[in-house]
């Protein structure tokens, strides 16, 4: 079973490596969305530093959503998904392996580039560790919950828009605690509580996603 999961992980990473745009596009999108806020709202440092936490989190969420659409779609379109589901392993192993690669490709780069974005939005430097930690716990949750939606809309025409409709309401708690933790850190307050809750949500998503996405794929 572990071997099967590792094989999927290896295959998906290889696929992305040969098609690097898939990895770079969400990242560019993330930076672009963030860059629009100073243009649209105000370039003033005091205002930007106040909204920075929320802006970064909303942009990270949208970037994740954008890349989620393809999570199962390409495999479904060329028929390999059907073959993978025929493998003598439970479908949740497939889900977990694919979600892990999705996070590696879309979540991790966001975390790595977030200090740069934080500087662009004048987020206080002492809040950057909290930002990175909250993203580290939050983006896997986004990938996991999003996988449920991606599995449900696989094979449905116009799935991208539908996916957004299904998944965004489920993202509400993550964005609340994600951006609150950064805002609290910016004001010099304790962030342990928020981080603990984000971790709890990650564990929770880890529990329901394999079942929900796995059974949705088999429909």
């Amino acid at each position: 079973m572990i071997k099967f999961m590792l094989a999927i992980v290896r295959r998906d990473i290889l696929l992305v490596a040969r098609q690097p745009a898939e990895m770079i596009n969400p990242l560019v999108f993330f930076v672009l969305v963030v860059a629009l806020f100073p243009l649209g709202v105000s370039p003033e440092a005091s205002l930007l530093s106040e909204v920075a936490a929320g802006v970064i989190w909303v942009a990270a969420m949208l970037a994740t959503l954008l890349s989620l659409e393809l999570l199962f779609k390409l495999d479904h379109d060329d028929g390999s998904l059907e073959q993978l589901l025929l493998a003598p392993y439970p479908s949740w192993t497939l889900v977990l392996a694919k979600v892990f690669v999705h996070w590696l490709v879309s979540g991790l780069p966001l975390i790595l580039i977030s200090p740069l974005i934080a500087t662009m939005l004048f987020l206080p430097t002492h809040a950057v560790p909290a930002l990175m930690l909250s993203l580290l716990l939050g983006t896997p949750t986004l990938s996991l919950l999003g996988a449920i939606g991606a599995a449900l809309v696989t094979g449905v025409r116009g799935g991208g828009m539908l996916l957004t409709l299904l998944i965004l309401p489920l993202y509400v708690p993550v964005i609340i605690f994600g951006s609150s933790s950064v805002a609290a850190a910016a004001q010099g307050m304790a962030v342990d509580g928020y981080i603990a809750l984000l971790a709890a949500m990650f564990v929770f998503a880890l529990m329901i996603t394999p079942w929900a996405a796995g059974s949705a794929l088999k429909l």
Partner: peptide, 17 residues
Amino acid sequence: ILAIVGTINIPIIKYSV
């Protein structure tokens, strides 16, 4: 499936807001 996932999430959403 979506309704079940949503229902599990409703209390979490409720308390988080």
